[in-house]
Design a protein around this nucleic acid. Structure first.
Lengths: 199, 199
DNA sequence: ACGCCAAGTGGTACTGGGTCCCACTTGAGG
DNA sequence: CCTCAAGTGGGACCCAGTACCACTTGGCGT
């Protein structure tokens, strides 16, 4: 029982494999016929499990293509922490987002189809925003201690304003990138988005 | 038939009255027992109409307390248009948001309970974000023509980055205001949030 | 005043996401 | 071999949202 921490046990590995496979199938279905036109029943049937079990793996239909976002939270925190403490938070946030732009840099079609999915499915957009909210909540305290504000932490809008704006810039950059069908560098677009706030 | 434009006809006025009354009842129920614990059936029963009719008035359960947001879109556009064309968009956006801070300035409890509702109901937050998205889409083209970018409009992330960040700042300010139980000036908080981006 | 049309209303049934519970299997360990 | 925990599937259930239908009602022209 205490060795489970050392290495992923069999059960955990099969569970992860299951998640990955279901996720792949769902991604394909969503791309083919749209997220909102795909039922959980269909995904479950295609993946060879029951509706019940599907919901044991994923809390909601949309999560099936968004789980990887959650795992990103700690990585974001680490990336931000790795930045020098006297750097301007805005710059640190920009550099933290290198995580995003680097990710899938070799397979832009994946990111593109993801953007398309977001564009055409409001419920997916909503879920996505929810995930980003968790990132925001993770980063806000880190920025807050950088600012060392005179106000009590949660009554100072500044840290949250910085983090939320940075994420908004990221989303704007990605949307512009998607509108251009993936032409142009995501880094350049993000730079432009985040620089226009400080010209 | 062509005089309907002149003055609201009887039907329209009763319709508006109905909306207002149902909205008031729903607001009370949401505050009392939480939004997610309140069913449409309950609202309908309490308001004396059928579930069917409820959905004819409001597209979704949450809309019952968010309809006033939609009507705000054109007002936002007008407020932004009223700003001088050579003003920095960020400043114009700040001034545009005076619409928000002025609204309910006399009845802060209303805004406070609204913030509480947002805090405890993720689905409400999602809907709210959706409404704000429509504001964003309205304002982005206005900012775009101010910037007169070198890129084709929808491939330049800058206008959307500005608008979305401004809204993010507004949300951060409101959240901080809610955390302080309404102490402090919303204008000051919003100023602080939007200035930290440009220190 | 009469009838007509449009708009509004309520009822019913249906889809689909999400939760809960129960019975069954299966795999790991004593 | 037995046991217990974890995982699985099935079914019932709740609720939001949609579609369709029959019915009423209010406004309007003749």
């Amino acid at each position: 029982m205490n060795d489970t921490a050392k290495r992923p046990t069999l059960r955990q590995r099969t569970r992860q494999a299951m998640r990955d496979e279901v996720s792949a199938i769902a991604t394909r279905l969503f791309a083919e016929q749209g997220c909102d036109n795909t039922t959980v029943e269909q995904i479950a049937a295609e993946a060879g499990l029951s509706r019940t079990t599907f919901f044991r793996y994923f809390g909601a239909k949309e999560d099936v293509v968004l789980t990887w976002l959650e795992d990103l939270g700690p990585a974001l925190v680490a990336a931000f922490r790795a930045r020098p403490g006297d750097e301007h938070p805005w710059t640190s946030l920009r550099r933290t987002f290198d995580l995003f732009t680097a990710m899938n840099a070799d397979a832009p079609e994946r990111s593109l189809s993801f953007m398309r999915m977001l564009q055409e499915s409001p419920t997916m957009t909503a879920r996505y925003a929810e995930k980003q909210q968790t990132w925001e909540d993770l980063l806000v305290p880190l920025v807050a201690e950088r600012l060392a504000g005179d106000l009590p932490a949660d009554r100072d809008p500044a840290p949250r304003a910085l983090v939320a704006s940075a994420l908004a810039c990221y989303n704007a950059a990605m949307q512009a990138w998607g509108a251009g069908e993936g032409t142009g560098s995501r880094d350049d677009l993000l730079d432009r988005a985040m620089n226009v706030l400080r010209d």
